[in-house]
């Protein structure tokens, strides 16, 4: 099971839940899972087949890709944090 932290930006879509547990092997699966739990949350955080550009996808503290194909190891901790740029 994944431990998914719901960002405050999506609190209005998540009925006040701050964390949920669900199973997913990819970012696409994860977003589908979240949409199943909280209808409407998916479109808020997707742009085509990717995560929206204003969020970064973080697996176990590591920035990961935005593609729906991004794999997620089992039992990972998931965060969505503000998008990061570097110099």
């Amino acid at each position: 099971m994944l431990r998914v932290f719901i960002p405050d930006a999506l609190a209005d879509h998540a009925a006040g839940e701050q964390q949920v547990e669900l199973s997913a092997n990819t970012l696409g699966d994860l977003i589908s899972g979240l949409e199943g739990m909280f209808p409407g949350i998916g479109p808020r955080i997707t742009d085509g087949d990717r995560l929206v550009s204003w969020l970064s996808f973080v697996i176990n503290g590591e920035l990961a890709g935005r593609s729906f194909l991004t794999p997620i190891p089992p039992n990972s901790e998931i965060h969505f944090i503000p998008a990061i740029a570097g110099g």
Binding site: S53, W54, S56, I81, P82, A83, I84, A85
Partner: peptide, 9 residues
Amino acid sequence: AGIIGPGCV
């Protein structure tokens, strides 16, 4: 531009 993101982090 989005520099606010890392600023907040």
